[in-house]
Amino acid sequence: MDIITTEFFQRALIGGVLIGITAPLMGLFLVLRRLSMIGDTLAHVSIAGVALGFLIGVYPVAVGLIFALAATFAIEKLRKAYKTYAELSIAIIMSGGVALASLLFTMGKGFNVSVSGYLFGSIYTLDTTDLVLIGVVTVVVLLSVGLHAKELFLLTFDEDAAAVSGLPTRFFNFMISVLTALVISVSIKIVGALLVSALLTIPAACSLVIARSFKQSVVTVVVIAELAVIAGLLSAGVWNLAPGGTIVMLLIVILLLLLSVRRRLNAG
């Protein structure tokens, strides 16, 4: 139990609570637009950036962030080339990211240990710089989404209608991608690159089961993600488990519970 009072654990907890707001929020927009794969892709590309950061001795989270942003530009470009096959461009970028990451890993064998923290997440690695960065990203996401909630709703519900209303749909699409890149690259230290997309998508999947209105779904995703993050980090700390894995398993349990409750309601 002592671990919970330590400074590094409290840093992880604060960081986790902030990510628990922003990650499922961005995930909701991606899932509703049927772009849930983007989260996974950006995470994989971002891990290549992390590896490069270690290799050249630059703050890995920042390099990962730059890589994730570059990937969103590349996805936009490819999406225009393969208009109706958006998944194709996503798959290409994802494998490119993994390939690059594996090359960089093998070039710098010495840092394998610290890299595993980025793959699966760790509560021991978050330092004050990371926490400040997470805080800044949280503010940026909340401001952008808060100011444009109506427009983002219309865009996700009906892109044609949004375009006919004269909304700059390309700008908003791009905004969603950039914010997602920011959230993912600051989340991977806690949740892990391989698991971060679950924190984006599973709360949204839960909200599709229970939410009636868009407002409700926004509240639902944040509440569910916070439940899983806080409980996950606490049990990871107490029983020395991988935090990313614990959080994701909890999310899956919540989703299954909701599905079975709904089935029972529908049957009864």
Partner: peptide, 22 residues
């Protein structure tokens, strides 16, 4: 309108969205 039937939006929210423009 080929929206996802599970899309979490009430009729009121959809009608209201007609007001959101540039």
């Amino acid at each position: 309108n080929s929206f996802n039937p599970l899309f979490p939006a009430t009729v009121r929210e959809v009608v209201m969205s007609g007001l959101f423009s540039r």
